[in-house]
Design a protein around this nucleic acid. Structure first.
Lengths: 204, 204
DNA sequence: GGTTTTTATGAGTGATTGCTCACATTCTAT
DNA sequence: ATAGAATGTGAGCAATCACTCATAAAAACC
């Protein structure tokens, strides 16, 4: 649900309200991508979304709630498309599957500029950090299941491996996005090579 | 030089002034580590450093300048201790050398809590980003020289390898620092294993 | 048409915060 | 001792910004 009841002051009933909320979230994503969360004002969001601040605050209790709603929208979408690839089963080659997952994450990252500042650069936002961590734990869990099937490692070690791998992919995709455009394909290829070499070294 | 003339309104002449500046930087590091840059006020810094705001602004033209001065202090120190290890020459085993460099960076990170928020989570601070990038470029350059001696790769590819490696170490050390204390030794070990596997895969 | 619910409006408020400035104190040198 | 330079002080200014509230329009229902 995009309309999380705990983060919303009022759940929009009519279509007009729902469109308002959607427009506000879209606008917030754009503005955050361009200027960073701390540098975007609620008045700016409202104005850019063709709403009055009063209207904005009818639905959102405070500024942070807007970010949280946006975060949840992103996370659900990403969880859905990654879930498909996780359930690809044993038909596909293991390493190809890893490559595909990296590609999916990378594509999502590039397609949603507002997504980036959601996990990095937002100190002191308890609830947001929490929702990001939930997602992270979820992904680690998915990979752990995958690795349990494909790698022969003691549980404890496997968890470390998974954490490091997920963390590397997450941070490197960010780094690739920030790098010069001409370098991106090469960097993405090397990222895949790193993961491949690492996982292979665990199979000997 | 800690007393960078471009970021300082006035370079402290007397010992008292120099101690003031040092105390302000130390205090800023502590406060930033605890609450994040955006959440720390200049009045708070002054008060915590047993100085008046007026005194603070006698030396620093604005809040950002404090952060920049602090950043430079960190970067010089880190550059110095890493430089030693880079110049260890061919006497030491290549992989051991990489491990040592990772350890050095990790130790520095753990010993200087104010260092972390300096590179992550500070959107919209042009000059700071720039000084961090300079440092990054410098380190990549150092590694590139090292790799040129040890690996047989075309220049273009070697640069990509170096960038990815430095970036991974940088981000993973951050991640390790944020992880639960009991996991840290394991995560650090895996980080080294990743780098080792990756570099080894390039030597075949 | 009348009533109620939902949504819209934006000037204004209160709190925060980076920073100034007029003036005071301390140190150094002659 | 005295001048001059360096450093110290903190009340208060100006600007910003998240958020409120009294009121109005729009839509839904009878």
């Amino acid at each position: 649900m995009t309309d999380n009841e705990t983060t919303m002051r009022k759940v929009p009933q009519r279509k007009r309200g729902q469109e308002r909320v959607k427009k506000i979230l879209d606008t917030t994503a754009e503005l955050i991508a361009a200027h960073g969360y701390e540098n975007v004002t609620t008045n700016q969001i409202a104005s850019e979304a063709n709403a009055s601040i009063g209207s904005l605050y009818q639905f959102f209790p405070n500024k942070d709630a807007i970010l949280m709603a946006l975060s949840e929208r992103y996370l659900e979408e990403l969880r859905a498309i990654m879930g498909e690839q996780f359930n690809a089963g044993e038909a596909i080659d293991f390493f190809d599957q890893l490559d595909r997952l990296i590609d999916i994450f990378h594509d999502f990252y590039m397609d949603n500029p507002g997504f980036k500042p959601m996990f990095y650069g937002s100190y002191g936002l308890e609830s947001l950090t929490q929702s990001g961590e939930e997602f992270y734990t979820d992904i680690v869990g998915q990979f752990d299941i995958l690795f349990a099937r494909r790698l022969n490692l003691p549980d404890e070690k496997r968890l470390l491996v998974t954490m490091v791998m997920v963390s590397i992919v997450k941070t490197q995709v960010t780094m690739i996005d920030e790098a010069d455009e001409s370098l991106r394909p090469g960097l993405l290829r090397e990222l895949k090579a790193v993961i491949r070499a690492y996982i292979k070294s665990l199979m000997d």
